[in-house]
Design a protein around this nucleic acid. Structure first.
Lengths: 283, 283
DNA sequence: CGGACCTTTGACCGCGGTCAACCTATGTGG
DNA sequence: CCACATAGGTTGACCGCGGTCAAAGGTCCG
């Protein structure tokens, strides 16, 4: 929970709710306590899930979705800084973010870490465990109170064999993940600090928009040093670039709150390279 | 074909053969013309393919491999600089490198390109086309005369539904690809030019070794500017780093020929980061 | 032999890392 | 309610790594 609360912390309430959903709203658009309360016991099966069109149920008949439901485990919410899984953990499951957000990273031998990516609702985590041996190659921690759907790989395979549409949708999602990683490689490969930071903001904007939230006003759920580490920059450089993007009028930054003031300008800054490519990650 | 030939070009001969296999041998170990000739009409179905243990047939019964054979298309060899597919091409197929090597890259708007990765025999290309829409997100060109197996995705899905082991092996390979991309992200993210170049050589060494070739003596199949572009460095910096690695006694570089002189030293240079991680890409 | 391309080497300098100080937000205990 | 501690974020000064420009080999080809 990175946004200020009227009184005390809402974290207790997030437990057993899908409160993480609210974290991408800008400060002034924050939900009231009432609306949060109303959503506490909301039904969140696949049929009612707002992300299902970008998830496995897409294209399936209601009956087939029912079959899928039977293999989905819905775990208790995960608190901020809690691990979803750790590097080298054995795993027989994939995870889909239902609410909140995650960060994945790889440990260096010397104890440092390299952030691999960030995950918003509707996105898959843990595809790296598909490889031989089934061990995770990276760790994933919650950036805020979050919840996930867990999918046992074996059972998903069994079901995929019976439901061809599920199979092909699964592969489409995997393909999107691969493309997303490729785009990250492009971003890190040859770009200036300015373009990296601008592209990062633009990508977050597009991802939030694709999720049905505001694409022009949102809160970053990760601290600066995670952004810096992800982009291969120092914290200071990220801060300076955010400052200069603010000065140019492209965006307005207030702590973790972001307003896109001039989308065209922001796109123009990113343009020398990858505007079309660095769009919403998993679509 | 990047290595010198005793007389004239062998390129004509590579056509309709699997000559690309020879390109990763060091100069002094090159096959004679005779042995190349003998291999021209060698049978290269899945059962006889030396890469099958890292490919889809792994773990399948001979009968199941026979079924797999029926959907594999074996295309004519691809010449150096010829495209396997182009960005935005519609595609219903995956490809597996049978011989030779490939480079994949993304076009920038301004006409520049960013290399995404290199592909050696036994490795999969084109998984990015699995995503929604089935369009390739990158282009792939042959770095030398090469050949591939083509796998229509639809037919692979059909067969996977019938052969669970095929399904899980396919997912394992995809998982390896994802891990490989993640490792590239780590490499590009925070490393010095020295470590990037050393890690690149170390990775090539391990990949060749895993393929059954020499891990201490091999030829790079790509020009310097491809390496530089891939690593996010300038050509000059790559050249300088290769020079300093030579001076340190870790390796010996002669044009595209590489000899690993002191593996321990090379690993030590890469160590601050990702020795274990940046190993053979697709295993 | 001549030309195109690849690779190396040197000189210069700017982007971005590093170090340091300061500012701000949040939480804790007196 | 304020003093203080802590963590996160910003800003400034400095300088080194690596990009850029330029020129000179090397290698392969017709």
């Amino acid at each position: 929970m990175n946004h200020p609360s009227p009184k005390g912390s809402w974290r207790w309430m997030a437990y057993e709710t899908n409160a993480g959903e609210f974290n991408c709203l800008a400060t002034q658009e924050r939900q009231t306590a009432e609306s949060m309360m109303r959503s506490i016991f909301r039904k969140v099966d696949c049929v009612h899930c707002k992300f299902s069109r970008a998830c496995l149920p897409f294209g399936l008949t209601p009956e087939e979705v029912g079959h899928l439901e039977t293999i989905v485990k819905r775990k208790r919410p995960i608190n901020s800084d809690e691990y979803l899984f750790r590097q080298e953990d054995h795993s027989n499951s994939l995870f889909i973010v239902k609410s909140g957000s995650f960060r994945s990273f790889i440990w260096d031998i010397d104890g440092g870490e390299q952030t691999i990516g960030f995950y918003l609702p509707g996105e898959f985590i843990g595809l790296d465990a598909l490889r031989q041996g089934g061990r995770h190659h990276c760790s994933a921690v919650a950036l805020e109170t979050a919840s996930v759907c867990e999918l046992p790989i074996n059972r998903l395979n069994e079901l995929s064999a019976k439901i061809p549409k599920l199979q092909s949708q699964f592969l489409r999602i995997i393909g999107s993940q691969i493309v997303s990683d490729q785009v990250t490689i492009v971003l890190l490969g040859n770009r200036s600090a300015t373009v990296k930071v601008a592209a990062f903001l633009l990508a977050m904007s597009r991802r939030y928009k694709a999720l049905g939230y505001s694409g022009t006003e949102f809160n970053l759920t990760m601290p600066r040093h995670n952004i810096a580490n992800f982009l291969g920059l120092s914290i200071e450089t990220v801060s300076r670039q955010l400052g200069s993007l603010s000065n140019s009028g492209a965006v307005s930054i207030k702590n973790r709150g972001v307003q896109i003031k001039n989308l065209t300008l922001l796109e123009a800054i990113v343009e020398p390279g990858l505007t079309n490519q660095y769009s919403c990650a998993n679509y």
